[in-house]
Write a protein that binds this DNA or RNA. Structure first.
Length: 870
RNA sequence: GGACGCUUAGCUCAGCUGGGAGAGCAACGGCCUUACAAGCCGUGGGUCGCAGGUUCAAUCCCUGCAGCGUCCACCA
């Protein structure tokens, strides 16, 4: 294998090849018979409708980091992928496509339509899978599932039948949210409320006895066609005398009673509320209390069904009715009103509340278990703030409408007998009514809410209801990674069903990550059409750079606004990794020498110590789901410490072959371990380089590095060397000294260790700071620029460049800053109450700090004194 | 109406149990130093939203206020 790397990183040269290599070697496969401890994740199955968006990219990057990290840590990992059939969403997409071809779902019929959806799924369902692969996802593709797979369909039936038999599923006529476009009922969660500028219309209903009129206020005049009463507050004196009378609805001439109900707010509008039990959830409740008739006036398509308005769209009818009332002189004021209106989360149309016969899950008992499991820590929600939302929702949970009047989905396993009218629920198809033996039976035409099947995902995908080795090994899963927008839709329901059917919470940790928003801070979504394709970013910058960016931005608790500059920065980091590796590979023999501890120099021990410290922080960060810390630890260590300092420090040893073996051994070792540490976040480039560095098969088969080095003495020495080099560079920088110009440096210190250090590191300092000699002295030369740290004062003679007065002013200013700092600490240290109450280690730290500042002040004063000499 | 989150350098944001204010980008100055100009060396820049409180000590904890954002909820 060639050890040469191209001068610039080009991800296209290796990313897809590396991925194919992993697939060929089956490195993503999780073995249920393995003796290793398990670490498993099930993917939040993306909808087959869409392509990968930024949310998916972040979501799957995080999962991939976890999977790859735990694999390196020695776990048997299994990341189970798949897709969701996404009932309404998919049906809508396919319908639109058909419409473009002049076809329609209703004309072609149910069976032909479903066939059409499957055809579409075969074509487009694969797109998102390929995108996940481009991202580098280490999914166990051999176990890919789809929520409409045969096995999963069986699981759904089992779920339905069990809940039904236990009385947890029932069928009832109830007020539901109806989408007139999708022509189906929706669950409460599927309704999205938006503020809308509207009008509050005041309309007069004449009293039937001719003694005047009652003025009601409504935003939906068209629903007057379904009014069953006018309600007033029982203690409202204005209307007390009217309770029990009737009013007559204009145009349609229907008489309805005036009733009293506490729900009415006296201050709102006129204090009179029209009650439409068939088209408003509150009115529905009032209707129940007063035994009112439920008069439907809008059909499933949103068309009016009553009187001369029959067949009109509900919004057209609204205007028509307003005009009618105006003509009759029954229209009062129209006041502007902002109120929230429910929209279908799929098609954005205004939801029509409607009474209809639907299937519901009685969720309270399931929710109770799900509450308990989180409270006792069987599932930990990270970050913890989401736990409140979860619990709050569970506490106030209401029955879940699970039937949908669409075609694409799991058909409800219930059969209605046309002979005796009974309904039979069964997990196998039935052809004869068990009650009357009639063969005239038909399966329920409704399908189930998509989330009813998604709720089983963590175990239906592993073979449930069978007891499989896969479940035995990998359930419960270790982590669920998702965004908060489906916390209720999915996470909560998985909790309920997992506990119900497996007796065990479906995941140990639920990590809720941020949402990636567009430049306006808007949530990206398919329906809004503001999605940026991550594939463009991958194509432009490579998957590794893209993933690293997402990782760096994935701090807990805040939404992410993605900018392309950030990705560019990550691309530069990948390039840095590439070039540092390239440099070291160029200077290596076929095999990297082993580290021989006795040959190590101080800087070798220094970088090994820094590496270990980084690894400890890194592991802690991954375990705590602090991915932004993961990124910054890697970035800082590799770029600032390894490349900028260590590699520069050892260049002489490499070029002059003086202690080269130990340097190369250390550099090779640190590079190798860094690559492994970086592999979970940047899998492609690390694999590519690692193979060339080690000559071994795959980075995925190695182990995560142990943090085992700690050389504190040598680390201090190099730290002070770096400090000195920085001081010298600082002076040179400030005076714009030509970088090529080599200068002598004078240094005052009384510290023997420092004197010793400058002697030992002389060649390094000479090279790194472009210094000819270091002269330890107690006086400064003329025309010298100076800088002081706590350890030493440094003087560089710069004839002609240095202005003595300016230099003096600079030093005095510096001294003033130091004095201010010093006063803060000495103030603290002279404070008795501080000394009495502060932790001893804090006091010690502050003392050290104070004395450090003091020493630096001395050095600055000394420099000022020395300046005065010329 | 409830709940939560955010407000830190010009921009985007870290700062997780109170004790050093930081990164990336941008800006400025200097460098083609034989891995990397997608780079190297250096510099400047912040009353940590406002007002109180607790504490020896507050960007961090508490209260109130302001602005922004999100979720939940039956606002005719």
């Amino acid at each position: 294998m060639s050890k040469e790397l191209a001068p610039r990183v080009n991800p296209k040269d290796y990313e897809s090849a590396v991925y194919q290599f992993w697939l060929d070697k089956r490195l993503f496969h999780g073995d249920e018979n393995s003796k290793k401890p398990a670490f498993s994740i099930v993917i939040p199955p993306p909808n087959i409708t869409g392509s990968l968006h930024m949310g998916h990219a972040l979501n799957n990057t995080i999962q991939d980091i976890l999977i790859r990290f735990y694999k390196l840590k020695g776990y048997e990992t299994m990341w189970l992928p798949g897709t969701d059939h996404a009932g309404i969403a998919t049906q809508n997409v396919v319908e639109k496509r058909l419409a473009a071809q002049g076809k329609s779902r209703l004309k072609m019929g149910r069976d032909a339509f479903i066939e059409e959806v499957w055809k579409w799924k075969k074509e487009s369902g694969g797109a998102i899978i390929n995108q996940l692969k481009a991202l580098g996802s280490a999914c166990d593709w051999e176990r890919e599932r789809f929520t409409m797979d045969e096995g999963l369909a069986g699981a759904v039936r089992k779920e339905f039948v069990t809940l039904y038999n236990e009385g947890l599923i029932y069928r009832a006529n109830y007020m539901v949210n109806w989408c007139v476009h999708c022509r189906t009922a929706l669950s409460d969660l599927e309704v999205e409320f938006e503020d809308k500028q509207d009008f509050l219309y005041n309309m007069r209903y004449p009293l039937s006895d001719g003694s005047g009129a009652l003025e009601i206020a409504t935003t939906r005049p068209e629903t007057y066609l379904g009014d069953a009463a006018v309600a007033v507050h029982p203690e409202d004196k204005r209307y007390a005398h009217l309770i029990g009378k009737t009013v007559t609805l204009p145009v349609i001439n229907r008489e309805i009673p005036v009733i009293a109900d506490k729900y009415v707010e006296r201050e709102f509008g006129t204090g009179c509320l029209k009650v439409t039990p068939a088209h408003d959830p509150n009115d529905f409740e009032i209707g129940k209390r007063h035994n009112l008739q439920e008069i439907s006036c809008v059909d499933e398509s949103g068309l009016i069904t009553v009187g001369e308005f029959k067949g009109l769209d509900r919004f057209t009818a609204r205007m028509r009715i307003i005009n009618c009332f105006k003509e009759l002189g029954l229209m009062g004021a129209e006041e502007p009103l902002t109120h929230s209106v429910g929209h279908c989360y799929r098609c954005r149309n205004v939801v029509e509340p409607m009474i209809s016969l639907q299937w519901f899950v009685r969720v309270k008992p399931l929710a109770d278990a799900a509450i308990k499991a989180v409270k006792d820590g069987r599932t930990k929600i990270v970050p913890k703030m989401w736990e409140n939302s979860y619990l709050e929702w569970m506490f106030n949970i209401r029955d879940w409408c699970i039937s949908r009047q669409i075609w694409w989905g799991h058909r409800i396993p219930a059969w209605h007998c046309k002979s005796c009218g009974n309904t039979t629920v069964s997990d196998t198809d039935i052809f004869v009514c068990p009650d009357c033996k009639s063969a005239n039976i038909e399966q329920e035409t409704d399908v189930l809410d998509t989330w009813f099947s998604s709720a089983l995902w963590p175990f239906s995908t592993m073979g449930w209801p069978e007891k499989t080795p896969l479940l035995e090994k990998f359930y419960p899963t270790n982590a669920l990674v998702t965004a908060f927008d489906i916390l209720f839709f999915w996470v909560a329901r998985m909790m309920m069903m997992g506990l119900k059917f497996m007796g065990e919470t479906p995941f140990r940790h639920a990590y809720i990550h941020a949402l990636i928003r567009d430049q306006h801070g808007q949530k990206m979504s398919k329906t809004k059409g503001n999605v940026i394709d991550p594939l463009i970013m991958i194509d432009k910058y490579g998957a590794d750079a893209f993933r690293f960016t997402l990782t760096a931005l994935a701090a807990q608790g805040r939404d992410i606004r993605l900018s392309e500059e950030r990705i560019e920065g990550s691309r530069n980091f990948v390039n840095k990794i590439w070039n540092a590796s390239r440099f070291l590979l160029m200077n290596m023999e076929e095999t990297v020498p082993q580290i021989n501890e006795s040959e190590l120099k101080d800087e070798d021990k220094w970088i090994l110590t820094k590496l270990s410290a980084m690894l400890i922080n890194l592991e802690k960060a991954i375990e705590g789901y602090e991915f932004n810390t993961v990124a910054s630890e890697l970035y800082h260590f590799f770029w600032m410490l390894f490349c900028d300092w260590y590699v520069e420090l050892i260049k002489d040893r490499i070029f002059k072959d003086d202690g080269k073996d130990a340097a190369i051994a250390t550099a090779g070792y640190v590079l190798e371990q860094s690559l492994v540490a970086m592999h979970p976040t940047m899998p492609f480039v690390t694999e590519h380089i690692w193979q060339r560095l080690t000559g071994k098969e795959s980075i995925m088969k190695t182990s995560f590095p142990e943090a085992k080095w700690e050389f504190s003495t040598e680390t201090k020495v190099i730290d002070s060397t770096i400090d000195l080099i920085s001081l010298i560079r600082n002076i040179r920088g400030e005076y714009n000294v030509n970088p090529g110009q080599i200068l002598p440096v004078y240094l005052t210190t009384d510290d023997d260790d420092i004197i010793k250090m400058t002697g030992e590191k002389l060649s390094i300092i000479r090279r790194m700071a472009k210094v000819s000699d270091i002269i330890v002295t107690d006086a400064a030369p003329d025309d010298a620029a100076s800088q002081a740290s706590a350890l030493y004062a440094v003087y560089i003679p710069l004839s002609g460049l240095v202005n003595a007065e300016a230099e003096l002013a600079k030093l005095k200013k510096e001294l003033a800053v130091l004095e201010k700092d010093y006063n803060i600490y000495s103030g603290k240290l002279n404070n008795e109450r501080y000394l009495a109450k502060a932790a001893p280690e804090i006091i010690a730290k502050d003392r050290a700090k104070a004395s450090g500042i003091e020493k630096q002040m001395e050095k600055v004063r000394e420099a000022i004194g020395n300046l005065g000499k010329y």
